[in-house]
Simulated scan of single mutants.
Amino acid sequence: MNIYGSTISLLERGLDFSSAKGKVISQNIANVDTPNYKAKHVSFKQMMHEAQSRPINAYRTNELHFDFSSKVSKAGIAKYADFNYRQDGNGVDMDKEQADLAANQIYYNALVDRLNGKFNSLQNVIKGGR
């Protein structure tokens, strides 16, 4: 029996996405002066597709049950290959990266607040409403 429901696991996946996006944005900002560096981005659609294609560990009690094995791939990080923002071939737009970083931070904080609310509710139930 799962006492958490699926909400906590969905919030965890959202935090994973936000963390990956934050790392990519930080790499882009750190390489703003690197010649020929191509900016990277994290695709939510690609991460969801890859999460659905990950294998599920399941014990098959009958050969007629579904086989859950499938291929595992890396995170949904892609490069803007043909985009040059500056003369030196660098593809990082600092204004866009800073705006994305701020939006990602707001998204991350909202997920953390929601997760804290879930844990506070569980704690309240465990204490018996006291």
Rank of each mutant, 00 (worst) to 15 (best):
4 Y>D: 06
5 G>M: 15
6 S>E: 15
9 S>C: 05
9 S>M: 08
12 E>Q: 04
13 R>V: 06
13 R>T: 15
17 F>Q: 08
18 S>R: 09
18 S>Q: 15
20 A>P: 00
21 K>Y: 02
22 G>Y: 14
23 K>Q: 06
24 V>F: 05
24 V>N: 02
25 I>H: 05
29 I>Y: 06
29 I>R: 01
31 N>A: 04
31 N>C: 12
32 V>I: 14
32 V>G: 02
34 T>Y: 12
34 T>H: 12
34 T>W: 07
35 P>S: 02
37 Y>H: 11
43 S>N: 01
44 F>D: 00
46 Q>N: 06
47 M>H: 03
47 M>T: 14
49 H>V: 12
50 E>N: 09
51 A>V: 03
51 A>Y: 09
52 Q>M: 10
53 S>F: 01
53 S>I: 01
56 I>F: 02
56 I>W: 10
57 N>C: 04
57 N>Q: 14
58 A>W: 07
59 Y>K: 11
59 Y>S: 10
60 R>I: 01
61 T>I: 03
61 T>N: 15
62 N>F: 06
63 E>W: 14
63 E>K: 15
64 L>N: 07
65 H>G: 10
66 F>W: 09
67 D>S: 12
67 D>T: 12
68 F>R: 07
68 F>N: 08
68 F>M: 08
68 F>G: 11
69 S>W: 01
72 V>W: 05
73 S>V: 12
74 K>R: 10
75 A>S: 11
75 A>I: 06
76 G>E: 02
76 G>D: 11
78 A>R: 14
78 A>W: 05
79 K>Q: 15
79 K>P: 11
79 K>L: 08
80 Y>I: 03
84 N>G: 05
85 Y>R: 13
85 Y>V: 14
86 R>M: 13
88 D>M: 05
90 N>V: 14
90 N>Y: 13
91 G>V: 07
92 V>Q: 12
92 V>I: 13
93 D>S: 12
94 M>P: 03
95 D>Y: 05
95 D>F: 06
97 E>P: 03
98 Q>V: 11
99 A>Q: 06
99 A>V: 15
99 A>N: 12
100 D>V: 06
100 D>R: 13
102 A>C: 05
105 Q>L: 08
108 Y>G: 04
109 N>Q: 13
109 N>F: 02
111 L>D: 08
112 V>A: 09
112 V>Q: 05
113 D>Y: 04
115 L>H: 07
115 L>E: 09
115 L>F: 14
115 L>N: 08
118 K>E: 12
120 N>S: 12
120 N>V: 02
122 L>N: 01
125 V>P: 01
126 I>L: 13
127 K>L: 08
129 G>P: 01
130 R>L: 13
130 R>P: 05
